[in-house]
Design a protein around this nucleic acid. Structure first.
Lengths: 129, 129
DNA sequence: CATTTACATGAATATGTGATCATATATTAA
DNA sequence: TTAATATATGATCACATATTCATGTAAATG
């Protein structure tokens, strides 16, 4: 095979994929590139075991870095590095008080994301298989 | 390093970090490890530019793979690979019809995650700096 | 049957990322 | 000032992951 085969594999199916109106509609309803980019970055910031644990710990109240090292049972450096990612992704905010820095969830959206996400995975875990 | 330095750096701050009750409360309220793990995997599945774009395209209606290659302007292989990740993470579901496979968001939670996440990043982008 | 179409997937590669170690900075105390 | 404490951060390394290429598979069609 593959000696003189100029016919490349179809990059897009040729039958207009059954419902071109839906396709056109979907294309029109796409969020702007920048928003999609930021959205991916947001979820990427949430998409790590350590960071999810941090957010879960911050769900009810602010905590300082060393509180978090205690909850997570991880060393301070690792926690700080992850907090940096969460700060950069506007997922948490920080407040300095003396030698301590207190972290909390950035806003109610983050709380909602954690809550809805938890509901989802818990539902998946229980039955519904 | 490490000749006679018994004094290791404090792994946890020594003053009980100002509010030990909050700490105890946070520890108690932690979701089970398994849930946190699944939650991180869920967000990880959402945390990619290509996959966010796929979910955005699927927001209003199901689409087949080649519809998606058209919306994303990516080759079919790359799209299929990402769909596999979304399937594994229970983010989308699929339905076979003849030669085509139609994908749609798994449930309303996923829609909500996209909506709330979008709100968040749009708010961040507009002012509020 | 053989061919085409729509999709899935293994391998390879380049890039991204998390934990650790060492160290820097800032705040407080002595 | 010097020392100690709380946190931040650069460098490194091991590992994960996204895209591409090539190929496999299932359904429809001739």
């Amino acid at each position: 095979m593959s000696v003189a085969m100029p016919e490349k594999r179809a990059e897009v199916c040729q039958e207009e994929c059954f419902h071109p109106e839906m396709l056109a509609k979907a294309k029109k309803a796409m969020l702007p590139e920048e928003t999609l980019h930021d959205l991916a970055e947001l979820f990427k910031a949430l998409g790590d075991h350590t960071r999810v644990k941090i957010l879960n710990a911050l769900h009810h109240s602010e905590l300082c870095v060393c509180d978090l090292t205690s909850v997570l049972e991880m060393n301070q450096s690792a926690v700080s590095h992850q907090l940096r990612v969460l700060r950069a992704g506007k997922v948490v905010k920080s407040r300095k008080e003396g030698k301590n820095v207190f972290y909390s969830l950035d806003d109610v959206h983050i709380q909602q994301l954690i809550e809805i996400g938890s509901e989802h995975v818990i539902e998946q875990a229980h039955g519904k298989k």
